[in-house]
Design a protein around this nucleic acid. Sequence first.
RNA 1: GCCCUCGUGGUGGAAUUGGUAGACACAAAGGACUUAAAAUCCUUGCCCUUCGGGGAGUGCCGGUUCGAGUCCGGCCGAGGGCACCA
Length: 854
Amino acid sequence: MLVEKFNHTVAEKKWHTFWEQNKIFKASADRSLKKFYCLEMFPYPSGKIHMGHVRNYTLGDVIANFKRLNGFNVLHPMGWDSFGMPAENAAIQNKLHPKDWTNSNIQAMKSQLKLLGFSIDWDREISTCDSSYYKHQQKYFLELYKKGLVYKKESLVNWDPVDNTVLANEQVVDGKGWRSGANVIQKKLSQWFFKITDFAEVLNESLDTLISWPEKVKLMQKNWIGKSKGCEIQFNLNSSDENKKITIFTTRPDTIFGASFIALAIDHPLAKKYEKDSKFNEFKEECYKIGNTDEAIAKTDKFGFKTEYVADHPFIKNKKIPVYFANFVLMEYGTGAIFGCPAHDQRDLDFANKYNLDVTPVILPPKTDKKDFKIKNEAYVENGTLINSDFLNDLTVEEAKELIIEKFEKEKKGKGKTTYRLRDWGISRQRYWGCPIPIMYREDGAIVPVPEKDLPVKLPEDVSFEKPGNPLEHHPTWKFTTCPETGMKAIRETDTLDTFVDSSWYFLRFCSSNNSEKGYDITDAKYWMPVDQYIGGVEHAILHLLYSRFFSRAISMNTGFEIKEPFQGLFTQGMVCHKTFKTEDGQWTYPEDVIEKNNNFFEKNTNKKIIVGSSESMSKSKKNVVDPQSVIDMYGADAVRWFMLSDSPPERDIQWSDEGIAGCYKFIQKIWSISEKIHNIKNTQKISEKEKTNLNILLNKFIKEITYNIENFHFNVAVAKFYEFTNNLNKILSDTDCDKDEFVYILKQFIILIYPFTPHVACEIWEKITNQNDLHLQKWPSYKEDLLKREQNNIVIQINGKKRAILLAKDGEDENSLFQMSLELDNVKKLIKNKKIIKKVYIKNKLINFVINE
RNA sequence: GCCCUCGUGGUGGAAUUGGUAGACACAAAGGACUUAAAAUCCUUGCCCUUCGGGGAGUGCCGGUUCGAGUCCGGCCGAGGGCACCA
């Protein structure tokens, strides 16, 4: 019989229309239902969707569909992270208004997402650049301002002296501005900050409650917050001026007897004295050049600037400790001052060796003789016992820390303290395309929040990008206003908010997206929050997730419903990679412009030879991208979705391949042809009870495997199980006398199981065999555990741990008779002959191991 | 530099708790069907073999165990993170 092919173009369009018209994926307002909030990180509307989006949203869609079939009321919304730099760049380069550019991108990407058949509740769509969104954000800003969680301080920015503009780190390439090519300098600007450090402890501690987060992400956040327990110590200075004391922070107070210098950050208050010293300023310039990332600091040679100050050691009489400024000490961390103990810290040792400072070991490694222990170029940072340390001698590091802190506190020379590496969140951006900060600067110098009734402070639309810098700053009228209370003249804040603020509460907005009064409603949030499953790229492991955890907690404090943790479950997916193609003169080439001839590759139009490079994550700059649109057109949405779930575990990178997607297409066709075969069975002859039982066992095992693998995010394994089951089913179909009812039943179960993965072909087959369009209303199949108990098991017979035979035995067969039976097997007999059995091991229904001496 | 993760066929990967290593897929080779191609289906996949089976084997070296891809120790290699792109 000629089987008609599955026409994905027609079928997919048909189901899209049906789903949309009947609002199949709309979350129910019925609060008695058990809920499931499934969220993927919302996209930046850059123009077109890319494979990374396809993968991200396919993963989420499987979960959302799976949960719906399991009876949950699922919230699966989508929105747009639509403020940000690319829109401004487009405005500068193509003379398009950021708003128009953004909105047309949104339209384009939305229709692409619809093509993929994602089960999204589009009625809740939001866009962060819309004033109906950001007006609530301005309100939250003011609330935090009132709570004292927002403040202003001077802070360094990357400044392009030619374009007269602030640059983001990514706009600084090799120390030069990306557009002008000018050397970027560090400039101090007064900027707004959120006091996230007030939450350092709670954000750190609360990580332990997130049991469904990847350990890796939690660890990254822990490192970022960087809690460390230590001690502040005051040193007396021999100084003739007002600086009589200096406070340092250390996590190693136990090494105080090995202290040989004090090092200060270049912007430490003591630097004031040297601000006119040209040598010091040269040194300072050198330090600025390094930048302030941990990586840069760790890799740079340590150097310092000696001050005239000398400090007294707190316990060793007459011991004088020199004071330096050093390039590896940061003002932002601790007190901006440390004491150096070179014997037990590599940085301190490098520094001490450079300036010929004392190196006195104070920790002796275990089982080492004091006489043999010398420090040269490598610091000893492990545990040990204290030496050369007066009253601390012979204690362990832990004991010494405890005792010395006690002593410091008693003698009022210092105190135990916990510090965090986490710094406050700078939220000012000197850019146009962002949420305006609702603040005015009054002519009398007062900083005045815009009253709530005057919100939103809307972005002006008539802006020009002719001049470099912030268009809000240049706008002829926008920033001039009056204080509503006093009538005094005022100037608006022209900085806008970091776009990470926009994405720090959008998941709350989805709970009440159509509420114009409030950003979110507490009753809605009580029902929907927290997000049960959040899915996105690991690149957001730190900032976005940490900021969201902070912001949602901060704005919900004292509202009667505090959001302690917004994301209960987190999954971070890997990237989509593809081979790279380059011409011999080093030009990146798009895959669709490359053709293969006898294992050699050429550029289509020019016939230039192409060099195939390694597989890397798809990026526009390397041109190793495949446009989802073209693949959807050719193979259909189901095949693309299937590809995204196949082969690679979702947390790992996936390699895009043309053969792979073709294979997925074949599989979609295959399940279609199997369903046709079953649908067209004419013979209704019953199959035997035994065959029926076997089929049932197969199906039950299959249901269990698919359920387990979805719940555990092993989608690639689930896909393999689908292949396996399909192969088996196809074999049985050609072997067995057909029983239509039986096979239709199996097919229906199969279709429900595959619906979350490939909904279009599933709905089409379902409709064909049932004449109904209610696949989305079906219940997820359950399995019977007793059916999975097999009557017979293959028992592996090992001799000395090596597989030698397989024995088919009744379930639960007596141990001794199993030993007897296995000893009868030819191969076993042969190998055991004349040898003594020392030990017999039996693992129920699985394995026997005879241990014999050779 | 510091912190973390991962090393399994030609390739992507599977192996829930220590118990048949290589499921499933891609690629390759051979075959069937066909006038032919496409599509589809079958077989093969390290070494030795008397075709029963035997040997080696999960980056390398060692350990624990009746039994190790899985646990422990030490090497080697690859990747990721380390403060305003989103």
